[in-house]
Nucleic acid binder design. Structure first.
Lengths: 196, 196
DNA sequence: CCTACCGATCGGTAGG
DNA sequence: CCTACCGATCGGTAGG
C-alpha cells in the first residue's frame, strides 16, 4: 500500500531502515528483512549486493540531507548570527523528523560500516559539526552569542537535537515546526528565568 | 594489570562492557570476549549463565547509580529549585563520566534485553526522567524556571547530557566536574547573551 | 523471484 | 578452565 510506488530497491531500503532502527543493524537478519518484504532471503540479492550496502546508502543519504539543509539555512550572510543559528537548528530538526527511522540509523548504526566508509562517514559528520561550531564562534566574536567554549557548546547543542529520534513519533501533538521552534528557544534562551 | 584485583566475573563484565560499547551487543561474540580475556569461549560459562545476563547486569547497575545520585542531589528541600536541578545535572554527569563505557551500553544497548527485563528497564528509565520533569514543573510553578512544557524541556535536558559518552574521553582537557558545571550553565542560561 | 545450498560462525553445553 | 562438540542461524551464491 504505502510502498506501492517505490521500486523494489527503495522498498528494501525503507523496510531495512525500520528494522535497523528497531533491532539494530547487526541483530537484523536478511531473512527477517525478506519476510517483512514478503519474499525469500535469496531474492533480495538481485536488487542489492550486500547488507552493508543498504546501511551505506541510508547513512550517506541522510548526511547529504543535513548538509543541504544547513547550506540553505545559513547562506544569507546579512542575517544576525543568532538567526542563522536558529535557522540551522530548525533545518536539522526538519531532517530528523522527516524520516525518524533513517535518522536513528544515521545516528546509531554508522559504526557497523566497514572501512573506508566508516572513516568517510565520520569525516562528513565532523565537517557538519564544524559548521555549527563556526556559527557559535562567529556569534561569540561579535558578542551576539554567549559561548565561552564554542566546541563544547556546539556538541551540546547537537546532542540535544539528536536525541529527538528516540522519542519523536510522527503525528503526535507537536508538529515538526513546533518542535524545531521550541528546541531552538530552549537552547538559545535556557531554562532559567530572565530578569529583563 | 588494571583488572588484577577483580574477580573473574567482574573482569568478564568489565571487558564485555568495553566490547559492547565499541561494537554493539549483537555484534560482539562470546569468542571475541573470551579472546580479550585470554581464555576459551566455553570457559566463560562457568562464571555467567548467558550473554544477556552480562548486559542485564550492566544496564541495571547503571540505573541504580543514576537513581542514587539523583536522590542525593535533590533530598535537600530547602534549596531553591534551580540549585536542586543544577545538583541533579551534575550528579548525572558524574555517573556518566565515572564509567563512560558502561554508560554508553546503558544508553544504547538496553533494547537487546529480552522481556520482561526490557519493560522493567524502560519503566526505571521513565521513573528517572519523571524526577527531572517534576523538578521543572516545581520550578515553573514557583516562577524560578522557565519551562512552558516541562515534559519537553526535561527530555531535551537529558538528551544534552546523554550524548556525553559519545565524545567524552577520560583524562581529557576538562575534568568531569568542569563538564558538569558547563553543561548545567549552558542548559540553565542558554546560548544567547543576556541584557542584564 | 525461488529452491537449494555453501562455509562460517553463533550461543551454549557435556565431560573431564 | 579446556576440548570437543551441538543445533541453529548467519550472509551470500548458483542455477534456473
Amino acid at each position: 500500500m504505502e510502498t506501492a510506488l517505490l521500486s523494489r530497491k527503495d522498498q528494501i531500503d525503507h523496510t531495512a531502515t525500520v528494522l535497523f532502527r528497531a533491532r539494530g543493524f547487526a541483530a537484523t537478519s536478511m531473512r527477517e528483512l525478506a519476510t517483512a518484504l514478503g519474499i525469500e532471503a535469496g531474492s533480495i540479492y538481485s536488487h542489492i549486493r550486500s547488507k552493508e550496502e543498504i546501511l551505506h546508502r541510508i547513512c550517506f543519504r541522510l548526511a547529504d540531507q543535513f548538509f543541504a539543509g544547513f547550506e540553505d539555512a545559513t547562506q544569507n550572510n546579512t542575517l544576525p548570527i543568532a538567526d542563522s543559528l536558529r535557522r540551522a537548528i530548525e533545518s536539522h530538526v526538519q531532517v530528523l523528523t522527516a524520516d525518524v527511522a533513517a535518522s536513528a540509523v544515521f545516528l546509531h548504526e554508522w559504526r557497523h560500516l566497514s572501512e573506508p566508509a566508516r572513516t568517510e562517514f565520520l569525516a562528513l559528520r565532523e565537517q557538519y559539526e564544524a559548521g555549527f561550531r563556526q556559527l557559535l564562534i562567529n556569534g561569540a566574536e561579535t558578542g551576539t552569542l554567549y559561548a565561552p567554549d564554542p566546541a563544547f557548546a556546539s556538541l551540546t547543542l547537537l546532542a540535544s537535537l539528536n536525541w529527538l529520534p528516540t522519542w519523536y513519533a510522527p503525528g503526535g501533538k507537536l508538529a515538526p515546526a513546533d518542535i524545531a521552534h521550541r528546541l531552538a528557544n530552549q537552547l538559545l534562551f535556557g531554562l532559567e528565568v530572565r530578569e529583563n
